[in-house]
Amino acid sequence: MSKIVDKELVKVNKELCARCGICIDRCPLDCLHPDKDGVPYMKYKDCWYCGVCEYECPFNAITIQLPYLVR
């Protein structure tokens, strides 16, 4: 089976991300956690695509996409 690379709904631009953690603090479903460098990633797949992380990010570093089943 070919590798699926497009599973993460929350895309973080590491160059813009300041590791401030606001998105991690605000995520209503506890999806986002920091990786070893403090960059947020989707640790849990419970995304509601509410868009809070993208909206709250002060550095416009986040873009969310709708799950394939929804889009």
Binding site: D25, R26, C27, P28, D30, C50, G51, Y55, E56
Partner: peptide
């Protein structure tokens, strides 16, 4: 359960 500032159904 989530975060107070964006918790609940009116998150956005």
């Amino acid at each position: 359960k989530g975060d107070f500032k964006r918790g609940g159904t009116i998150a956005m």
